[in-house]
Design a protein around this nucleic acid. Sequence first.
DNA 1: CAGTGAGCGAGCTTCCGCTTGACTT
Length: 781
Amino acid sequence: MAKNLLIVESPAKAKTIEKILGEDFEVKSCYGHIRDLEKEEMGIDVNNNYKPRYIVPEEKQKVVKDLKAVAKKSDEIWLATDEDREGEAISWHLCEVLGLDPKTTKRIVFHEITKPAILLAVKSPRTVDMNLVNAQQARRILDRIVGFELSPVLWRKISVRNNLSAGRVQSVAVRLIAEREREINAFTPISTFRIEAWFEAKDTAKRSVTFKAEGNKFSQAVDAEAFLKSCIGAIYKVRDIQVKPAKKSPAAPFTTSTLQQEASRKLGYSVSRTMLLAQKLYETGNITYMRTDSVNLSETAMQDITQKIKSQFGANFVQVRKYKNKNESAQEAHEPIMPTDMERLTVPDADFRRLYELIWKRTMASQMADAELEKTIAKINISTNNEDLTAQGEVLKFEGFLKVYREDHDEEDVTEEESAESMLPPLRVGQLLDFREMKATERFSRPAPRFTEASLVKKLEELGIGRPSTYAPTISTILKRGYVEKRDKEGVKRSFRILKLKNDSITSETGEENTGAEKSKLFPTDLGLVVTDFLKQYFDDIMDYGFTARIEEEFDEVAQGRMKWNKMIDDFYNPFKKDVEKTIETAQRVSGERELGTDAVSGKPVIARMGRYGPMVQMGSQDDEEKPKFAKLKPNQSIETISLDEAMDLFRLPRNLGQFEDKDVSVSIGRFGPYLAHDGKFYSLAKEYDPYSISLEESIPLIVEKRAAKEQRTIKVFEKEKIQVLRGPYGPYVKQGLRNYKLSKEQQERAGELTLEEAKAVIEELKANPPKKSFRRKKKE
DNA sequence: CAGTGAGCGAGCTTCCGCTTGACTT
């Protein structure tokens, strides 16, 4: 029987540590937090110094029970939760629940799961740091207050039937996306004409190659044309050549946020997909912990990595580097994300392999030499106007870390200089160049791009908002609430002008480009815009991008024992509560209403606004004798940008298409999307059909097919009791009303002969003993 | 599943940050 019980947060960690510590220790995991504030009345006693009321949530009761049982049999208990605010609090909660004295219970910490690190930690235990615990309690309580006070305000003031929510993190995330969208909508592109010229010269192998040189930019076409004119008949001579060495350095090893960004850019993975794959790689022992904000490699890790670089590429590729975190909010409880064994070059299964190899390469590169470049800048003189053109070339002299890894950049970070990575033929000062042509091409400035999941994470991290464990869930939340959508946008065609100088004459032509196309980007919904505007108006301080950073400073004060946590909360709560009360009292219900104009036929006003079921347009008002007409907005339309013409088009539904089997066929958009209605039955329209243009001829086969499919699915119907036996992807099952009931294997095999009594019994049995649902998708009955 | 969009009021929803499996029509 083990004498010592050591508790960590992650079960995968527990397994590894148990092996390291041997038989004297039994290592158990508490699976993260074991207690939380109860939900009734926020779980906070506001009138008693904000005393928290903690409970062990339903899904954690088994964990706590098991820990208690093992604790009882152990002589000594060691708390080895993560070394950060949350980890410290978990240790304290463990003391509370297991009846341990926080003043004497041994608390140890380590940042890497290696034998020396853990043995060292065990040699120097401390006790729970109550100041740090109090900082966590302040964090938890403040988040609960903000979330549970603000959300109900939205329920009262936003005219939507929805589970609206607000919070310190999610509301600011939506604000970023909302503001970016409006920036884009308000953006007016400015066009410039950039001069580019092409020359021919001989390369080292005496072959003719073409290269490009660039000149001034002009904002007006006439000025660009005048410049081209001034070049007619010119002689082009190399006036000056500068050769400069340059270098590039590798990026730091992966944190959660940078892994999400690179996996998104290089592999096209969503943030949650990256985390799912990384979790599995961690559980199978292939990589270190995947939720981390640390770029700090341990000595052992650095040795492993440099060893591998030496054996694979040679000693001249090694450059030992220590990385520092730029981010002040980082808590560095873990190591960076890296392979647990650098000798493992790959893993099976394509999806895992791509992520693993990305991590392996980034880790290797982080300890590799700089890449050495030679940049050549040639100035080319134009004889007729004495202006210069500039040609730039770049030659890689030593690959260094680029041998394994090249970091991708977001579109907004790419500068024009960086994109010029071409080679120049050898040139000498005084050389006369063979001129081909010169162009002045119109280019338009672009607005900031919309956020991807990963670039949003990057922005949040920069602002110190959210933690590695919450980036993916935050994105899921704002998508689930309907504040934000992830989708593509088709570009629009735009023409641009090109002026060309060739053979001493100037010609003008027009090109066409696609602009504004987006793929898998985050767009705010009308609901997201309305909620953001509302929160900005009444709770400006919470919505401020610096709010989290400011309160983090106060949490630090608490952590250092310089401030009492209840005082900090009190200072926040009093004015905040006043704002909440004032808002409930004075704020109007908002619907984001916008007037679009009047209907040319009836003269009635047309408006766009949020309705109970989402964004819509309305013709006429409630006070009119005749009822107003309503229509839902199409998926890509927005209250802020829809035009009167587009609105009028929406009122074309419902449309009567004609008759089939002597009954009307009509098409409209309902709660669950576009549908066909025929003979009292409804048929959902698939995406590829447009309810505004679908014809009777196209509709009939859809109705016929759907009927047949339904028949195929149906095994048996008990008409009176409204019980059906249906065929599903998991085999036959019973359905009554909206609910499904699973059949036993044996019953599935003879589903066709199932009697009414048996079906009823199945329903009764499953109603009495519902199958255990996972806590995440748990629904209240 | 279904064609809604007033206002009332029942009874409900909601936060952030730690951690994993059980479930699916």
